Computed example of a mutant assay.
Amino acid sequence: MQAPGRAGWRVLAIDPGSTSTRWALYVDDNPVHEVTLRHLDAELEAYVRVWDQIPYRLERLRSSLAGRGVRVEDLHGVVARGGLLAPIPGGTYSVDAAMLDDLARAERGEHASNLGAPLAAHLAEPAGLPAWVVDPVSVDEMEPVARLSGLPGIERRSLCHALNMRAAARRLAQDLGVPYPSLRLVTVHLGSGVSLAAHRDGRMVDVCNPNDEGPFSPERTGSLPVTQMVDLCFSGRYTADELKRALVRRGGLVAYTGSRHLPDVLARAGADPEVRLALDAFVYQVAKEVGALATVLEGRVDWILLTGGGAHAAELVAALTERVRFLAPVRVDPGEHELEALVQGALRVLRNQEPARFYGIMCGG
């Protein structure tokens, strides 16, 4: 592909969520449009599977783009949020048949992010444009020693907010004027789930998977006492699906306080001792996991990086910083910036700063 003229690289980014589809048009590093399309529950209930929503969301996207005068033919590429793919190294991946087949089967789970690659492909391919995904949640760069769980047959899995944590790490490196691979970082994504990662040589060599382990969060339980968990599994109180929903949607702060919204929990903590205890325990557990990942880096940590929506909460950030600042300086980069992160991944390929990877080759497809 030839480099653009003075107008710059034009990239469309797509981020499908459970009840919304966000899109943004960038020219080089500059946003031109950023739009959120809301989807009513009643509209989505008509579809048995998430994958079945593709025609509906695609029509909404095309209509929204046309309404703002955005022609796909004028773009240089389309990039989208990656879904529940096979474990792969970080990077920008061309959407290929193997990726689309995996997402259509949804063997690793049904999730709105599975729609990103097909939506990008449907828009890009008729115009002869490339379509990509960037740093999906399944990014796996863990070292062999990190995979052993303690019980053969059960392996620790890499699943985390890779897109946001790696983008925040790159922004920090840019601000410092150093290459990202030169930094040794512990990143913390503070969201409805809390992900953490240890970064070394530009790779996330160990992570805290919020579905399986680590601190509890606004709606997830994190690690639980194993023997008590075994008893609960055989108590007859839950089916397997009900218990999984309790672990990832009804645990953590919402279980202790009745709210999964951090601003609400923070506002109530001053007057309610039980809410205060739950909030303090949340900070305590996140800090403890930061300390654990610092040992992965042999205690030589350049920065601790706090990001995600929860990093907007000054009281939370202050309490967490107080516990971990003895390990390394703390940098706060609040928010998720997912559309920007997607565009940056596409631009690195368009500018020949890194090659696009191919999912089918990585996964043997």
Rank of each mutant, 00 (worst) to 15 (best):
A271T: 14
D264K: 05
E73T: 09
R237D: 15
R170Q: 13
L129F: 08
A24E: 15
A66M: 07
S63V: 13
M362W: 06
A42E: 14
R260C: 09
L58G: 09
D212P: 00
A356M: 10
E43P: 08
D206W: 00
Y26E: 15
L12H: 14
L306E: 10
A198M: 01
R147L: 12
V226M: 12
V207C: 08
A271N: 12
L176I: 09
L119R: 02
V11F: 07
P144D: 12
V79K: 04
M142W: 01
V207P: 02
V137I: 08
G299L: 14
R6L: 12
P31G: 11
P31W: 07
V330K: 03
L190T: 02
L163P: 00
D102K: 01
L183V: 10
L65P: 01
G90R: 02
I154H: 08
L243S: 03
G335Q: 06
R22I: 11
L25T: 12
G193F: 01
E354D: 14
V283F: 03
L84H: 00
E213R: 13
S63R: 05
P89W: 02
V27P: 07
R156T: 09
L342E: 07
A42N: 03
Q353G: 13
P225H: 05
L342V: 11
P16A: 14
G310N: 02
L12I: 15
C208N: 07
G345M: 04
E125I: 06
W132P: 06
E354C: 08
V95D: 11
I154Q: 09
G299M: 14
A86C: 05
V330L: 10
M229Q: 13
E143Q: 11
G67D: 15
R323M: 06
M99C: 13
P273I: 12
S259G: 08
C160E: 07
E274S: 12
A318T: 15
R38L: 05
A246D: 15
D29M: 09
V133G: 02
R249C: 12
S223L: 12
M229P: 02
L183H: 03
E338I: 00
L253W: 01
L103R: 04
L85D: 04
T21C: 15
L339I: 10
E141C: 06
G310C: 09
E336R: 01
L75G: 03
A162K: 03
E340A: 06
E59T: 12
V178R: 14
A313C: 10
F282W: 05
Q285E: 15
R6A: 15
G291T: 09
A278K: 00
S217Q: 07
D280I: 02
R105D: 15
R166L: 09
G364T: 03
R276D: 12
R276K: 13
D333S: 13
G153L: 07
R357S: 10
G191T: 02
G309C: 06
G222P: 04
N114A: 12
L232E: 15
I154T: 10
N352L: 08
H189A: 00
Q2Y: 11
L75D: 06
D15S: 14
S192I: 00
L129G: 04
L183Q: 03
F234G: 14
R71C: 10
A117T: 11
Y93T: 04
R260F: 06
P136N: 07
V78W: 04
R81G: 01
A66K: 08
L277T: 13
V248D: 06
R348Y: 09
N114F: 11
R62L: 14
T227Q: 10
G82K: 00
